[in-house]
């Protein structure tokens, strides 16, 4: 009998990204093979310029690869147009960024409502309020991003990411702009929500401590996956 193998939720085959520069073609990613199972937490680490953020962008369908293909939630991203990709993201993917990327013209609550509205959920305001409450910011709902501290902004961003109940959460240096203590609290929040909701987590980080919290770590070097370590 073969053991039941869950379908990988993210799968990359021969993934490559090249850009043109004045000095000729620049290879950012080269033949990356990757498979992430549902519920896994994976950290992508590497020196700056190693192509971590580019890889994240490709896996999440924010950018198009030069070669190879990505399957996300069982869908071949290459087969979707821009609106198809947007639709997929709206329903099944969440994001947390280093610089929060909250929209300055919207309040904390409105920012959390945004992805719910994109995915055409009902009861948008109630759901958003509930998630904001979960990250401890119910009282700051009517504040604008520039009225919040960095840690608070990142918590709003986390609430926004979890609001739609995504299957996969991509995080790009989620603690990069925060001091150690605040970063610590944001990480705890991120992982506890991740456990609560059974979300697959793929994050890019410099932070060794943060990477260690993940069940698997991939190291990128010059655009290639060089090392993989898995917790026992």
């Amino acid at each position: 009998m073969t053991q039941f193998q869950p379908m990988p939720i993210v799968q990359a085959e021969q993934l490559g990204k090249r850009v043109n520069s004045p000095d000729g073609e620049l290879i950012i990613l080269d033949s990356v093979e990757l498979s992430v199972a549902q519920g896994e937490s994976v950290a992508i680490v590497g020196a700056s310029g190693s192509g971590k953020s580019t890889l994240l962008g490709l896996l999440a369908g924010l950018d198009r690869p030069s070669e190879g293909r990505v399957h996300l939630c069982g869908v071949d991203l290459g087969s979707l147009d821009e609106d198809g990709l947007a639709g997929l993201r709206a329903e099944r993917v969440g994001f947390v960024f280093q610089s929060f990327q909250l929209l300055p013209s919207l309040t904390a609550l409105e920012n959390v409502m945004l992805p719910l509205e994109m995915a055409e959920h009902t009861d948008v305001a109630a759901t958003a309020t509930e998630v904001l409450d979960r990250v401890g910011l119910a009282e700051r709902a009517r504040h604008y991003p520039n009225q919040l501290s960095g840690g608070e902004q990142q918590r709003v961003a986390i609430a926004r990411a979890f609001a739609t109940g995504p299957e996969v959460l991509f995080a790009d240096e989620p603690t990069g702009n925060l001091d150690r203590r605040t970063g610590q609290r944001v990480i705890e929040l991120l992982f506890s929500l991740n456990r609560e909701r059974g979300t697959t987590l793929i994050l890019v980080t410099h932070d060794v401590g943060l990477a260690k919290l993940c069940s698997r770590r991939l190291e990128l070097e010059d655009g290639r996956l060089s090392l993989e370590s898995v917790d026992a």
């Binding site: 609106d83 709206a90 992805p115």
Partner: peptide, 10 residues
């Protein structure tokens, strides 16, 4: 940001 969060072109 809108598009990352799943906003369609429309």
């Amino acid at each position: 940001v809108l598009r990352t969060l799943g906003g369609r072109r429309k």
